[in-house]
Amino acid sequence: MARYILRRLIQSIGVLLGVTILVFSLVQLIPGGPALMILGEDATAEQIAMVNHNLGLDRPLHVQYLDWLSKVCRGDFGKSFQDSRPILPDLLSRMPATLELLAAAMFIALLIAVPIGIASAVKRNSLLDNVGRVFALLGVSMPSFWIGLLLILVFAKDLRWLPSAGRESWTGVIMPAIALGFAMAGILMRMIRSSLLEVLREDYLKTARAKGLSERIVILKHAMRNAILPVITTIALQVGNLLGGTVVIETVFAWPGIGRFCYMRMLQRDIPTIMGNLLLYAVLVCILNIITDLLYALFDPRIRYS
């Protein structure tokens, strides 16, 4: 198990190194370069040269990259173009709000997906199954921000049951979590259904039934244990998307997380903050992927001992 964890960590370091190259390349995509972006179209060649010199952009590309990388490794993500504040503390201070939203969305997704997914597989081709499948497809087809707007319209503006924005009370997380988690619920529901259907054909379940175990135990303890593996993989693959979705949902619900903060900075074209944000998201995705892989190994001894 220790060797497996070590191998997984080394792989992640390689991926993270690639991530830093890609994030650094973002600067190269700026039409005319960062100096022109800062100074505007009317800038003279001298002004551009001066800004490039001040920012260290007149050095060879690989020197710029290594300098930036060494700072990033020491936790220095640079300073914002907007207010000259260090970027990392600003991002980290907003992290709890984003993680809270992420966890709540995941909870909602599982709350919807697990019972419907299981029922759909056990009662295959029934009315319940068909309704569940259409519901799952609808979930993945509706834009999350539109669901958010509709929820605000009905539950905040019309019925006045829930707050339409902010994180002041615990009820504030309900609507953003539903809007964010709905698509994930659809994906998970489909995965749980198909994965369980696959397992339900296995002989060992016949044995479990022949031993006289109740259907509930057979499904929840014996079948789900094997059906859960592809579901975990799906969750891992979807967490990145869920994290991406927080940007638009935090904006719709004025949720004070990293996503909304970075969206504001993106509108202002604050390149260092955008780079810092991308990097932080990629690190978060990598960490979540490692955790998932470890969970996977925990559930499946074949991986642990390979």
Binding site: P31, G245, M266
Partner: peptide
């Protein structure tokens, strides 16, 4: 495949937003 992993490390919407904010 490692190259693919690097691109998959970014949430798609955030990555696309970053490119759009830079490119216009």
């Amino acid at each position: 495949m490692r190259l693919t992993d690097v691109f998959l490390a970014f949430p798609q919407l955030v990555f696309a937003m970053a490119i759009m904010s830079v490119r216009g």
